[in-house]
Each structure stands twice: as structure tokens, then as C-alpha cells.
């Protein structure tokens, strides 16, 4: 298959369409058409360049935080994280310390007699929190830290159907805080000093496993926590 110099220099010969270079190139790029399936599922914009431009402008705007203490942790996390997943143990130590304090306060506030944590908003807080533009219920904050080799808090009790704003951070090395639903999982990666914020809504009651999915040393496979999702109180 090394050379066919005749094909480069000989007079053009009419070929069937399937053996023309243009057809081969077109077929070679056919995989790119998968983009339209992504767009069909709403996972990618049809106007890619317009969206990229808009998103880039958005990036320069400050990210609104929920409250004073949150803003502090958020700023710390921004300072600690590299531009694209870069590890920063020293620069992120301020963010880590702040996050540990917040998590400790969170656990102390919502700890139950059995050691689990049940975050909830009081009716007063609910009334004060603005609903989003679609009238959705505001998300309750949950803090979770991952470290070698465990999570704080280790048991979290939530209510089915309610949105929760999970603020998560690794304290020492990179960890996972993935959530198994039994049939599939939500993979979540935590970097030290970088806050990972996800809004999660559990649609079914049950027990969900939190587990580490990033190798973090000898105790990696024993890192686990539990989310217990309960029906709303009558």
C-alpha cells in the first residue's frame, strides 16, 4: 500500500463515486454529524459559535453567591483552583480551611441524634429565599468534604423531590464523591481547594451510596458515605 505514483500524475480517469477522494473525505467526516444528535438532546447548542461567544462574555461576570459566608469560600476556591483542573495544594489551603469551618458549622447545625445530618430550611428561610424565575423552590445547601479516606458528613438525610445545592471540596488529594443510584451513577470529581457545586434532586426515596471514584491511595476503596432520601413528612 506504499505508493501508487500513477494515481498522482496520470490523466484523470472517471471513477465510481465510492472511489473518489471527495467521497472518502466526506465519509471520513461523517462522524462529526453526531453533533446534531447532541443538539437534539439539548446537550449542545446548534449555534455553537454564538454560544461560545456568549459563554465567554458570561465568564467575566462575577458568580453570585448565596450569602456572605458562601462568598468567602467561593472566592477562596477560585483562588485555589488552577485554570483547568490544576492542583494547588498551597494556594488552596485558605479555601480548604474556610471550607472545613463551614462544613463543621453545617454539621453542628443539622446533626441528628443518630449522627446523621438533615439539612433543611426553616419556614422563615424559605419565605426569605427568592424563588427562581420558573417559580422553583430554592435549593437547600449541603456541604460535603472528602479526605483520605472518608467524607464529612458521612450520613446525610434528604427529602425526595427537593432540590439540594451540594457544595463539595477535597481537603487533601483529589477524590471522587460519586453517587450511585443503583442503575447508574452521577460521577463527581473533587480537587483540593476547588469547590464543586452541583444542584441535585432525588426523585425516589431510598439509600444512595457516595463513593470515591478517583484513586487516592491505600484506603481509596473504603471511602464511602450514605445519602438517605426520605418521603416528605406528612
Amino acid at each position: 500500500m506504499s505508493d501508487d505514483i500513477e494515481s498522482d500524475h496520470a490523466a484523470p480517469v472517471k471513477r465510481p463515486i465510492t472511489t473518489r477522494k471527495s467521497f472518502v473525505v466526506l465519509m471520513g467526516f461523517s462522524v462529526v454529524s453526531l453533533y446534531f444528535l447532541w443538539a437534539g438532546y439539548g446537550a449542545a447548542p446548534l449555534n455553537i459559535f454564538g454560544t461560545l461567544e456568549a459563554a465567554a462574555i458570561d465568564e467575566s461576570a462575577p458568580v453570585p453567591m448565596a450569602g456572605m459566608s458562601m462568598a468567602k469560600a467561593g472566592e477562596g476556591a477560585k483562588a485555589g483552583g488552577g485554570a483547568m483542573g490544576g492542583m494547588d495544594m498551597s494556594g488552596g489551603s485558605g479555601a480548604i480551611d474556610a471550607f472545613v469551618s463551614l462544613t463543621d458549622a453545617f454539621i453542628a447545625k443539622y446533626e441528628q441524634p443518630d449522627g446523621s445530618v438533615r439539612p433543611q430550611m426553616t419556614p422563615m428561610q424559605m419565605a426569605m429565599m427568592p424563588k427562581d424565575e420558573r417559580g422553583k423552590e430554592p435549593a437547600t445547601e449541603v456541604l460535603l468534604s472528602g479526605y483520605q479516606w472518608g467524607y464529612d458528613p458521612s450520613v446525610i438525610r434528604l427529602t425526595v423531590g427537593k432540590p439540594y445545592r451540594f457544595r463539595m471540596m477535597a481537603l487533601d488529594a483529589t477524590h471522587g464523591a460519586s453517587i450511585s443510584t443503583g442503575t447508574a451513577s452521577r460521577m463527581i470529581r473533587l480537587r483540593p481547594g476547588v469547590e464543586n457545586v452541583q444542584t441535585l434532586t432525588f426523585r425516589k426515596p431510598g439509600s444512595y451510596l457516595i463513593y470515591c471514584t478517583v484513586y487516592c491511595g491505600q484506603g481509596h476503596q473504603y471511602m464511602q458515605a450514605q445519602i438517605i432520601v426520605e418521603p416528605p413528612a406528612a
Binding site: E59, A77, G81, R191, N196
Partner: peptide
């Protein structure tokens, strides 16, 4: 999966 990867970069 990186938590601080900007959305335009993901896209």
C-alpha cells in the same frame, strides 16, 4: 469532570 473547567471550554 474537572470542577473548575469553564463551560465554554467544555463545549
Amino acid at each position: 469532570l474537572e470542577p473548575d473547567l469553564a463551560e465554554p471550554v467544555r463545549l
